[in-house]
Design a protein around this nucleic acid. Structure first.
Length: 853
RNA sequence: GGGCGCUUAGCUCAGUUGGGAGAGCACCAGCUCGACAAGCUGGGGGUCACUGGUUCGAGCCCAGUAGCGCCCACCA
């Protein structure tokens, strides 16, 4: 009887005003409250067992990106859980100076002012970078706070702060004394864009189509020519040999003779080397030791000279000859081909697609060239780090990443640690004439010049887990919190960073830097591409926080997280937001019904109470198991369903129906808030603060404990209720019967009655003639309704068909001797029970159809 | 060239030892009943990439094929 609402527009009020949860106003309050309470602060003198994590330090250039948001959410979940569980928890906070990246950003800013770093000079430039760091370095820390991360902000470190510089110097000097660090003229990956050497790990291969040119090298004695193939014709100017396969009959007679290098006139030998593939090109390989890694090795084997024709400026050197010096390699290539053509020495060309190294940093094509650099030999450092993973003292999750790590470590090569940059740890080596000095401080005496190069950023990052704790001093923090417990990261820096931390940890602390390495997903753009600013595919986590709140973002990211790459899913963030709202509203209801925190269940617990206690116990148990295995998505999922399904959908409905007590409602809610808190700290903290009887911060609450024991009987009984209620709801929906219309049933469970508006039939036999729904445990009828025989028969026939299908299926299985003999007994029994039940149902249905028809 | 991973509902993804395929979103239908319309209830929707094998039984184990992705690698 709903009269159409009419009247003045004012009366048409929208939905009733509700007290909504607003993350934008609530969340910042708690950041401050946690900070004031010292929630992230770690005390090395505490008696509690330690639990520490070192944050992968974000670059000072940076803003929080989605990968940071996920990684730091994971770490905060771990840290908050352990803090609640009674560990003295330290989450080490800090940022990385990120040599190349930061220098590039500042250079770019200078360029906008029309200044180059060279014009500014080194000292002034470095000052500018420090200013930049002061201005922007704090931004990402602020963003971590906004995400809810409970780092120990009071102990913030920077990879170039005073103490850290001491640690780096100490390590360099020590490794040099041990003979691991040495200086050598060696072929390195030269980045002409950066004008610096870069390490193997900073090189990426890209596919490029070049032209393979065939060039004739005349034999010196004039008896013919040898044709070589190359994609880099300009490098011929630096050739010092031609190599052929040792077993290649075409060229056997030429080995030991010489050819005259065109355009240059140098007489160079024809040599035999295993490296040459007779099948490729002409089977003759021009050898340019100064600009090709293979040729470099060939030259070593054959003791050939090296002629560098490309310089560190990326241009042809004087050794390339007057006609080419100063040109870019591309220009030189063109001119070389032209000149060779003029001399009639070209023997054809073809397009050739191959992979070519590019700088990961500047994007420039890497120019391999021989250069004087500092290297660190890794073989001795690697040994204990390999053993650690083999023996399980450092465990990767998922374990396959341990194999990837080991494969790389076992083939480890020297690490080029010097960079021709200005921003970074300057190499602690001084020169005076032929003398050199390696030390923590400048040597005594006049005329010493410090090595201008700086160390690879990862050299300092490798010390992070112990340098941040005060090493080389034996500080209380170091004693207490090293080794850390877990390193959380994506897989892309396993070699660059993780492996090097393990090596340095063993070398300088004699202990692994962390017990676990938890590798999480890389978050891709929704279309599967990389999230990147330049591609325009980036999604800013701060935008998501602004729109949906940090809790929703955290939950969504955890749901997405996995062991493989995942596409960013807005829907998961929405799911998080819904859980936030649900929790909020649940608390409102519980408060309204007199629920309290820390409530002692007064009277006898009801069935519903026993059931929710058991469900909460189950959720807590499972969450602990997931947490221990770094399974964050299942953890988030079970939290969602514990709150949504068990507590809100079922338990609170029972509470409203008077079948549960406010005491248990409060007690269970308290534990669910504690359970969800590490995932969604803000809304849970806010809810906690509103719950009568609650005091103190949820962040400092003990870990969730079940408000009652596991209760199989209660769970089984409620499963029956759920089955009945679901059947009734489905039936009502199908028949268009309002939930408000009361129906009768033969022997419904009392809770079914309460939830589904069902009353026991006064006269069960009377009901039998108008049974409209049958579940495993009850028959349902509608009072006052005459059964429409036709429609009812049709419906019953449908049910009959289903029952017969199920029966046939069960019988088929039971007829299978293999199944009956070999399957576990409980499965066979279950199948027998099923067969019996459906057989009975078939009879009942057939009888009812007969009665109606 | 070597290695690793992926392929499950329209979309994004779960699926722990092999024992009747799940979630969120989307879609359809019905609901304002005092926690929640940022909601509730119900529903439809899948040849688990393909082929073969092992097994009483395979999304799951094995072999192979195809497509996609990632990592490592010194063939001009």
């Amino acid at each position: 009887m709903s009269a159409p609402r009419s009247g003045p527009p004012a009366a048409e009020a929208g939905p009733r005003q509700v007290d909504r949860f607003d993350p934008a106003t609530v969340e910042p309050r708690w950041i401050e409250a946690w900070q004031n309470a010292g929630v992230g602060h770690a005390d090395p003198d505490s008696d509690l067992p330690p639990y520490s994590i070192a944050i992968p330090p974000p670059n000072v250039t940076g803003a929080l990106h989605m990968g940071h948001a996920l990684n730091n959410t994971i770490q905060d979940v771990l840290v908050r859980s352990h803090r609640m569980a009674g560990y003295e928890t330290l989450w080490i906070c800090g940022t990385d100076h990120a040599g190349i990246a930061t220098q590039a950003v500042v250079e770019k800013a200078l360029a906008a002012e029309g200044i180059s770093r060279q014009e500014l000079g080194r000292e002034a430039f470095v000052r500018r970078v420090w200013e930049w760091k002061e201005e922007y370095g704090g931004r990402i820390i602020g963003q971590l706070k906004r995400l809810g991360c409970t780092l120990d902000y009071g102990r913030e470190r920077f990879t170039m702060d005073e103490g850290y510089v001491r640690a780096v110097l100490e390590v360099f000097v020590s490794l040099h004394e041990k003979g691991y660090i040495y200086r050598d003229r060696y072929l390195v990956n030269w980045d002409p864009g950066l004008r610096s050497a870069i390490s193997d790990l900073e090189v990426e291969d890209r596919e490029v189509t070049d032209t393979l040119v065939r060039i004739a090298y005349p034999l010196t004695d004039g008896s013919g020519e040898l044709v070589v193939a190359t994609v880099r014709p300009e490098t011929m100017l630096g050739d010092t040999a031609v190599a052929v396969g040792p077993g290649d009959d075409r060229y056997r007679h030429l080995i030991g003779r010489t050819v005259t290098l065109p355009l240059v006139g140098r007489e160079i030998p024809v040599i035999a080397d295993e490296h040459v593939d007779p099948q490729f090109g002409t089977g003759a390989l021009k050898v340019t030791p100064a600009h090709d890694p293979n040729d470099f090795e060939i030259a070593r084997r054959h003791d050939l000279p090296r002629v560098g024709v490309i310089g560190e400026d990326g241009r042809m050197t004087a050794d390339a000859g007057e006609r080419y010096a100063g040109l870019t390699p591309a220009e030189a290539a063109e001119r070389v081909v032209e000149d060779l053509g003029a001399q009639g020495l070209l023997r054809g060309s073809e397009p050739y697609t191959h992979t070519v190294p590019f700088s990961h940093r500047s994007g420039a094509r890497v120019e391999p060239l021989v250069s004087l650099q500092w290297f660190c030999d890794m073989t001795r450092l690697a040994a204990p780090a390999i053993a650690a993973v083999e023996e399980g003292r450092v465990r990767f999750t998922p374990a396959k990443w341990g194999d990837v790590y080991l494969d790389w470590m076992r083939e480890i090569r020297p690490w080029c640690i010097s960079r021709q940059l200005w921003w970074g740890h300057q190499i602690p080596v001084w020169y005076r004439g032929e003398e050199s000095y390696v030390g923590r401080e400048a040597p005594e005496g006049e005329g010493w010049e410090r090595d201008p190069d700086v160390l690879d950023t990862w050299f300092s990052s490798a010390l992070w887990p112990f340098a941040t704790l005060g090493w080389p001093e034996r500080t209380p923090e170091l004693e207490r919190f090293y080794p850390t417990r877990v390193l959380s990261t994506a897989r892309d820096i396993i070699f660059l960073w993780v492996a090097r931390m393990v090596m340095m940890g063993y070398e300088f602390m004699g202990q692994e830097p962390f017990a676990d390495v938890a590798i999480h997903s890389v978050v891709q753009a929704p279309d599967g591409r990389r999230m990147s600013k330049s591609l325009g595919t980036g999604i800013d986590p701060m935008d998501e926080i602004e729109r949906h709140g940090a809790d929703a973002l955290r939950f969504g990211l955890l749901m997405m997280s996995s062991t493989q790459d995942v596409r960013f899913s807005q829907d998961r963030i929405d799911q998080g937001r819904q859980l936030v709202t649900k929790l909020w509203n649940a608390v409102r209801l519980v408060i309204e019904r007199g629920g309290r925190a820390r409530a002692e269940p007064a009277g006898a617990a009801t069935l519903a109470d026993r059931w929710i206690a058991s469900r909460v116990a189950d959720a807590i148990e499972r969450s602990g198991a997931h947490l221990a295995r770094y399974e964050l998505a299942p953890l988030a999922d079970l939290t969602y369903h514990a709150v949504f399904d068990d507590y809100c959908d079922w338990y609170l409905e029972l509470l409203k129906a008077g079948e549960a007590t406010p005491e248990m409602a409060g007690a269970a809610l308290e534990q669910l808030l504690a359970l969800a808190h590490p995932l969604m700290p803000f809304v849970t903290e806010e809810c906690w603060s509103r719950l009568p009887g609650a005091g103190g911060l949820l962040a400092e609450h003990p870990p969730p404990t079940a408000p009652g024991p596991r209760d199989e009987a209660a769970e089984a009984e409620l499963a029956r209720v759920q089955e009945e209620v679901n059947a009734l709801r489905g039936w009502r929906a199908q028949r268009g019967i309002s939930p408000r219309r009361r129906i009768v049933a033969e022997d419904p469970h009392p809770l079914t009655g309460a939830l589904a508006n069902v009353a026991p039939a006064g006269d069960a036999s009377g009901l039998e003639s108008r049974v409209l729904l049958r579940t495993r445990s009850m028959s349902v009828g509608l009072e006052g309704e005459e059964v429409d025989a036709g429609g009812e028969i049709e419906r019953l026939r449908g049910e009959l068909a289903t029952a017969e299908g199920e029966l046939a299926r069960a019988e088929r299985k039971l007829a299978d001797e293999g199944f009956v003999e070999r399957a576990p007994a409980h499965l066979v029994d279950a199948e027998r029970e099923k067969a019996a039940r459906y057989a009975a149902e078939r009879e009942t249905l057939a009888a009812r159809i007969a009665a109606l028809g």
